[in-house]
Design a protein around this nucleic acid. Sequence first.
RNA 1: GGCCCCUUCGUCUAGCGGUCUAGGACUCCGGCCUUUCACGCCGGCAACACGGGUUCAAGUCCCGUAGGGGUCACCA
Length: 523
Amino acid sequence: MSVRTRFAPSPTGFLHIGGVRTALFNWLFARKHGGQFLLRVDDTDEQRNVEAALEPILNGFRWLGLDWDEGPEVGGPHGPYYQSQRADKYEAAATALLAGGSAYRDFATTEEIQAEREQAQQAGEQFTYSRRWMAETDAQADAFKAEGRASVVRLKMPREGELLINDLVRGEVRFQWAREQDHVVQRADGSCLYHLATVVDDHDLEISHVIRAEEHLSNTPRQVFIAQALGYALPEFAHLPYVAEPGSKNKLSKRKLEKYLKNRDFAQLKQHGESIAERAKLQTEAETFNPVIVDFYEQIGFLPDALINYLLLLGWSLDDQTEEFSRDAMIKHFSLERVNHSPASFDPKKLLAFQDRAMQQLPVKQKVAQVLPFLQSAGLVANPPACDTAPKLTAIVEAAGDRIKMAGDILDYADFYTADDELVYDEKAFSKRLIKGDAHLVLKLFRETLAPLSTFDAEALETALKSFVEVEEIKIGLIVNAVRVAVTGKAVGFGVFETLAILGREHSLARIDRALALVVAAD
RNA sequence: GGCCCCUUCGUCUAGCGGUCUAGGACUCCGGCCUUUCACGCCGGCAACACGGGUUCAAGUCCCGUAGGGGUCACCA
């Protein structure tokens, strides 16, 4: 039998870090065993705009390169892949459960059940439904109906014995049947609940391995009961530890943003993203533009491979050394046996380290391609780009080197695209590097060296500046820093020779002149 | 509270009875390099939750305790 795994997103409008990790493990397992990975949409809640809410999720999968063999958009032989379109199958299953005696019609009201539950609680006992309103015969059912009661379908769970599950991650896990409840599987209006739906779907879709988050572990007994009652062969189960909050062991949740913002690393990443978004004039949604949501990383210019590689190591490891995995390598080495048993907390700093490394290894040409859309979005470069865009951008990217840690960081060098007379000078830098110690006097002198240079490339500039330093007997830092601030407005940046060369003589001189004028004005 | 799961540096982890005075990575802290920043290089801090067993020998096996977490819906 071939390996088939699935990930079942709810159409919520966003892809959560924890969810992707689960999806990744499913995908890897399927790919490793030459099987199929499918996407099934858990929309039994019947939201109205399913397609719209699903789009960002599918987009996330595409961006990450987690391709699905069956599911939305691609279809497949086991469709439909939307639970909302499979209601008839669930109803049929509920009927079969009833016919087989594994479920019963229950006419209790929620209040009556609640009362029993509270009674048990007060008595300090474990709640077990009395089945007082259970109708086993049509006559009983009619009698309840006569009282004006409506019925739901409940599982008639065993009340003795135990269930042994052989979990592929956790090993043997035992459950006492007596602890399980007679769960409702079908409402009075005929609609069916998640647990029934998921069992029916996993069977219909021929899922061989149910790989999901740990919070489903305690749901497994009722699902096993349903599957067995329906005569289905059981899939293998593997329960993954969940992804925890930064610096804690609580489950990561998209609803606790406020709390995560107190985490320094998390807050910094979010802030960095916001700064990129602002400068690139990105359209972001307050609710989803944060490091818990996958979209965030795409928007600010992360490399999907970096995120994937980081997520892979969140709960799985190969050995005590290997941290870098190509797609092929992770597929080759992945195994459920090496999945950890305890939750792993999400560490933004470490994610960043993976991103740094991936970016460092990216060929310049590809880096340029990554970075270009941000300049265009910011309105600094035309779309489509002019013919001189590529050489200049390439020069900037090359000069910036490792300083561009994510594509959006290109905007740190936006000054190369602003008009000379619109350059904004950082006040502190200006005073420290130009005014203090009369650095501007040296700069003025150096300007005269610069103006007549026959060639204006980095090499020539370096030669010129070095001899200037020698003749004038000054420290190189004095002039270098003055020049940098004068032409970029900032105290930090990459090599000053490259900076001047990229700017070109005309712009370099214009900026130096303007800075000099500002010094005079400040006096 | 019941049930289930988990417990090695701050974080991610290696370790499947002796090679562990516990290894790697990220972070952090020093230092070097230097034209600012980033990179790079060198060095440093830092962990087997606790208590009992089993064994010649336990981070590794067993049992407790403590702590953390998940789950207990006519949500998914």
